[in-house]
C-alpha cells in the first residue's frame, strides 16, 4: 500500500458479482441490477422492503433484484437465524416466500415464530428449523456478510445499482430515478 493512496476512500463497489449463487427476481441479464444487503430484523430494511417491491413492479423485466444477508446479530438477536431460515427456505425452493413473510413479520422472529412462518409458506418447518439449529446455512450467510463488508456495506440496508453503492436515502422516487438512469 502506497502512502499516497493511504487516505483514499475505500471502494464501494460490489466485490462479489451477481451470479448463480444469488437469490434473484427478474432476468439475471436485465439492463439494471439492484442488490440489497439486508437484515430481517432491521427496521430500515423493513421500510425499504415495500419500496423495493414497488420499484420492481414499475420496472418489470428491466430489473434484476438480489437479496444478500447482512445480519447485525449483536444488535438484532433474531437476525442471524432469520437469515439462515431464509437460506433454508431457498434449499426447499421457496426463498422469496420466506424473505417476504420475514419482512412482513419483523416484530416476531424468534425461533418459534420462524417455524410458524415457514409452515405458513408451505415449507417443511421441522426440516428447516433443524437445519437452522445445526448451523447448516451459517457459512452461506457469513459469505454474504463478508462480501458485503469488502464491498463497502456499512450498515443496513445497503443497496448496489449495477455494482455501485447507492448512498441516498432509498425512497421510491430516488431509487426509481437512479435505476432508470443507470439502466438506460
Amino acid at each position: 500500500m502506497k502512502p499516497e493512496t493511504s487516505i483514499a476512500i475505500p471502494k464501494a463497489n460490489l466485490t462479489l458479482p451477481l451470479a448463480g449463487r444469488d437469490h434473484i427476481q427478474g432476468p439475471i441479464d436485465a439492463p439494471v441490477s439492484l442488490v440489497e444487503y439486508g437484515d430481517y430484523q432491521c427496521q430500515y430494511c423493513g421500510a425499504a422492503y415495500p419500496i423495493i417491491k414497488a420499484v420492481q413492479k414499475e420496472l418489470g423485466k428491466k430489473l434484476c433484484f438480489a437479496f444478500r444477508n447482512f445480519p447485525l446479530s449483536n444488535m438484532h438477536p433474531y437476525a442471524e437465524h432469520a437469515a439462515e431460515a431464509a437460506e433454508g427456505a431457498a434449499a426447499q425452493g421457496r426463498f422469496w416466500e420466506m424473505h417476504d413473510i420475514l419482512f412482513d413479520n419483523q416484530e416476531s422472529l424468534d425461533d418459534e415464530s420462524l417455524a410458524e412462518l415457514a409452515a405458513t409458506v408451505g415449507l417443511d418447518a421441522p426440516r428447516l428449523m433443524s437445519e437452522v439449529l445445526a448451523g447448516a446455512h451459517r457459512e452461506r450467510v457469513r459469505e454474504d456478510f463478508r462480501s458485503g463488508v469488502r464491498g463497502g456495506v456499512n450498515g443496513t440496508p445497503t443497496l448496489f445499482i449495477n455494482g455501485v453503492r447507492f448512498d441516498a436515502v432509498p425512497t421510491a422516487e430516488a431509487l426509481l430515478e437512479a435505476l432508470t438512469e443507470r439502466g438506460s
Binding site: M1, P10, A12, G152, N154, G155
Partner: peptide, 9 residues
C-alpha cells in the same frame, strides 16, 4: 460511517 473495507484491505 467508513465501513470496514479499507481496514480489511
Amino acid at each position: 460511517n467508513p465501513g470496514a473495507a479499507g481496514i480489511l484491505a
